[in-house]
Design a protein around this nucleic acid. Structure first.
Length: 601
DNA sequence: CGGCGCGGCGCC
DNA sequence: AAAGGGCGCCGCGCCG
């Protein structure tokens, strides 16, 4: 059963069961929505709405979780780009509606939900009607090129939502691969629910532990306007050793001049170039840069801005990148330096189940290409050792750079030299990525296993290519065109692997999520008040972090073993959803820990 | 003053 | 050790 949700006049929401009628079976005030959703959820519907990131925080704030959704915004971004639907879209009934922003998925402003509390959230439901007054008029603005910060898709009339849902179902049904697309849209929509839940739940963050890390590396918190003591010391040392008493180490231009005057022949100030030179100033300079990064990105001001009541709540953007990986907006959640991860600490009585998929991308490639030899190398624990065991290369490090080189399109260095050996051992896998690169080089789209397609190259790219094919093209034109073509080919080569890996990860989480709910239900908490008070995650194991191929579940300690079993089972199920009975394995590195920092050990 | 491109670097 | 793909955030420095 599906229930389509949309605006139905001033301050009201209409609920439609499309299998029965196009007219709402229920119309409620917006503040009544959580209650009715909670009731109807017992029938396990798939909720169809314009934009999960607009609708779901308001429900979750009242403690209402939903199991299934269909996110029209994310689904449209996939369907309107996919080669699987290419022959159908565009005209007539397949035209994308004007209320649906085109272009990449962007951050939604103002979805931040305060820490779960029992306060009334009625005010969170006040939305502008479709085309109504105020900034939300963007929804009715046919010229709107992208997703305006102010556009508010909860104001779209339920009839328009229903029509778009029908359009999408028709596109899927008449596509080249309806089964795969259905799975992708379900997984993408589950990801949207999870993204909102990750924000609402927050990552448990221990300010004291974090501050001890900072003091250990940087020294005490500096006074306003000052830099940390350890950075000042290193800066003074560098200035002295470069004989450049006034150089500003934070200025790339300034620093580069000083380095060259000191006889260090570098073209940039990047760490890897510096490391190729011998000079006493280099070690303290690299140390300064590392501390500078920590100080500006993840130190005291980051703590003040991002950690509230012991939780880090980044804004996740499911579908935020071309390949289907997520992005985040603010907080840098996907770039947390390893040395501050010790601050991720389970609540008392709780544990963290940390799991990452070992060598996910090469395994996905083996499955995509149906390369039995490559899958065989991954059977068991360590994929790279399997390649060594098969006699393809001599060392694990070689296996790793060769595989990365094959997936990223390396042409030079050790990686480039090793790739041909990989190609001889695993011709099917190599042919798949080579084909993806060749498609990209001629400007064609490539498509993941489940049907997400790469964006076309831009106008500028096409004009560079067409200029090079003119009779009067110069050798420089041709070189430039070849170079740009190969750049795009490296993108499409990686796209199919990275994008399909993102699909695996979405399926992993989508399968896991109801298992976590079931674990809580199987051993109900004696104290039920927490649920009724509106806190969605009290006593329930729940996802608190997601990083491309890695997840963290925060769970009552006595449920941690069950959670670990569920996480592993979900990984195996995800493999079957994508690759059926093809024998590619997806082993996890999994740990039950109090602190994220302990999961690496 | 804010906006933006860039170099650099954190993560996968 | 970097190389090859995907990102976001920071400070700097230039621009209007």
């Amino acid at each position: 059963m599906r229930i389509v949700v949309g605006a139905a006049g001033a301050g009201r929401v209409g609920l439609v069961d499309p299998s029965v009628s196009a007219d709402p079976f229920e119309t409620v005030r917006v503040d009544e929505l959580p209650a009715i959703v909670r009731t109807l959820e017992a029938r396990r519907p798939r909720w169809v709405w314009s934009d999960t990131r607009r609708w779901y925080p308001r429900l979750l704030a009242d403690g209402v979780r939903v199991e299934r959704a269909h996110d029209l915004l994310l689904a449209a971004a996939i369907l309107d780009q996919s080669t699987a639907t290419a022959s159908l879209r565009g005209e007539g009934s397949h035209a994308r509606p004007q209320w649906l922003p085109s272009g990449p998925v962007e951050a939604v402003q103002g979805t931040g939900v305060p820490a779960a509390s029992s306060a009334s959230h009625a005010s969170l439901f006040e939305f502008d009607d479709f085309g109504g007054a105020g900034e939300a008029g963007g929804a009715a603005d046919a010229s709107a090129p992208g997703l305006h910060e102010s556009s508010d898709l909860i104001g779209v009339p339920v009839a328009a939502v229903l029509a778009e849902h029908a359009r999408q179902l028709a596109l899927v049904a008449s596509s080249n691969q309806p089964g795969a697309l259905r799975l992708l849209l379900a997984a993408e929509s589950a990801g949207a629910l999870i993204g909102v839940e990750l924000h609402a739940a927050g990552l448990p963050w221990h300010r004291g532990v974090h501050e001890r890390v900072l003091e250990g590396e940087l020294g005490p918190k500096p006074a306003p306007g000052r830099k940390p003591a350890r950075m000042e010391e290193l800066a003074a040392e560098v200035r002295s050793l470069l004989a450049a008493p006034a150089v500003n180490l934070d200025s790339q231009v300034d620093l580069l001049k000083a380095l060259r005057r000191a006889g260090i022949d570098v073209e940039s100030t990047s760490k890897w170039q510096l490391r190729e030179h011998e000079h006493p100033a280099i070690e303290p300079l690299v140390a300064y840069k590392k501390l500078s990064r920590l100080y500006s990105a993840n130190a005291w001001s980051w703590l003040d801005e991002w950690v509230v009541d012991g939780r880090f709540r980044p804004d996740y953007v499911p579908g935020g990148t071309a390949t289907g990986r997520w992005a985040t907006s603010g907080g840098g959640a996907l770039q947390l330096p390893k040395n501050v991860r010790s601050a991720v600490v389970a609540d008392p009585g709780w544990a963290l189940v940390v799991a990452d998929a070992a060598q996910l991308e090469p395994r996905v490639l083996a499955g995509l290409a149906h390369d039995e030899s490559m899958a065989e190398a991954g059977r068991g624990r360590d994929f790279y050792s399997g390649i060594v065991g098969a006699g393809v290369v001599e060392t694990r490090d070689q296996a790793k750079v060769a595989i990365l080189g094959a997936m990223y399109g390396a042409t030079t260095g050790e990686s480039g030299r090793l790739v041909p050996r990989l190609a001889r051992a695993y011709p099917k896998a190599m042919a798949l990525v080579d084909r993806a690169a060749a498609d990209g080089e001629r400007g064609a789209s490539v498509t993941t296993l489940l049907g997400r397609s790469s964006p076309p190259p831009g106008e500028e790219w096409r004009s560079v290519q067409s200029r090079a094919s003119q009779p009067e093209a110069t050798p420089a034109d041709e070189r430039r065109a070849r170079s740009r073509a190969r750049d795009w080919g490296r993108f499409t080569r990686n796209f199919v692997v990275q994008g399909t890996a993102a699909e695996w990860a979405l399926c992993w989480m989508a399968v896991l999520r109801p298992k976590l709910v079931a674990i809580a239900a199987a051993a109900p908490d004696p104290d039920q008040r927490a649920h009724r008070s509106g806190a969605a995650f009290d006593r329930v194991p729940h996802l608190v972090y997601y990083l491309h191929d890695e997840i963290i579940v925060h769970t009552p300690r006595e449920r941690a073993d069950d959670v670990a079993v569920a996480v592993a089972a979900a990984a195996a199920e995800a493999g079957r959803l994508l690759f059926g009975e093809f024998p590619v394995e997806f082993p996890l590195d999994l740990a039950i820990v109090d602190s994220y920092a302990l999961a690496d050990a």
